Computed example of a mutant assay.
Amino acid sequence: MNLLNKLIEQAKNPNGILGSFMLRIMNSAHIEMNKWALEKIKVREESVMLDVGCGGGKTLQLLSNMNTYGKLYGIDYSEQAVKDSIRANKVDVETGKVHIEQASVTDIPFPENSFDIITAFQTHYFWSDLENSVKEVFRVLKQEGCFFIIAEVYKINYHMKAYKTKEDMEQLFKKTGFNTVEFYVNPNKKWICIKGIR
């Protein structure tokens, strides 16, 4: 396996020391994009939020700052990401405001209608079954809840075989049952934010 493939594998499923290093890089590399995207998210007091693919936990920190009285949950497929994310959110985890566990987006361990807001930062292009993953997100989202996918456009183009276009994603969201789908692209067209309202 060449170095690029090793790094992609670590980005997809971080593990060990290299995985932890990769999570730290991702935390700092994505901060500006994350802040841009979070401006699109209207958080009400006491919102219940889920970050899918919470990685190194930086997005959970930002969401926690926006959501003083709410509850936040993070899931990640990677055991290493869960450990690093818990460490990054130590205080909020200890107070019970933030709960992080190892789980897959294809089988989210929460009942229907659990969340007001669900975010997926730089992760959906790694999902093995995008259609069923979006259905699973829809299942745990409350009525009128919002689902946000945020990603760098070049990573979508690099990693995804299907659902690369705005039209494809809109069709997928509508087919799943979302009432409204909105798209935001930053001025230099490097980042995209897709918002689905149930």
Rank of each mutant, 00 (worst) to 15 (best):
L60A: 02
M66V: 10
A37I: 07
F147V: 11
N65M: 14
N15D: 13
A88Y: 03
K142H: 04
F173H: 03
L130S: 00
N132S: 10
T119P: 05
S28C: 12
I31Q: 09
A29K: 00
K135E: 12
D107A: 12
W191R: 00
T180F: 06
N27T: 13
L72S: 01
F147N: 04
S64K: 08
E101M: 15
N113L: 13
N65K: 13
I86M: 11
V185F: 05
I194P: 01
N186M: 10
I156D: 08
A151K: 00
D116I: 10
K35T: 10
L50C: 10
K97E: 06
L172F: 07
F21D: 05
H30R: 04
V137E: 08
M66I: 14
N132V: 08
E170H: 06
I75E: 03
I192A: 02
F148D: 00
H30I: 07
W36V: 09
Q80I: 10
F183M: 12
S64C: 15
M1K: 03
K12D: 14
K58T: 11
L50G: 04
K40R: 12
N67D: 07
E9R: 05
W36E: 09
K83L: 14
I41N: 01
E32R: 10
N5C: 03
S128M: 09
S28Y: 13
V105M: 07
S133D: 09
Y154R: 05
E79D: 14
S78R: 01
M160V: 11
F110C: 05
L23S: 02
E136F: 08
F138A: 02
T59N: 09
L50T: 12
V181C: 06
V52I: 15
Y184I: 06
I17H: 00
D92R: 03
E182F: 03
F126Y: 12
T95I: 15
G56P: 02
I150E: 01
E136P: 05
H124A: 13
I31F: 12
N67M: 03
G196F: 05
E39V: 07
S28H: 09
Y154C: 08
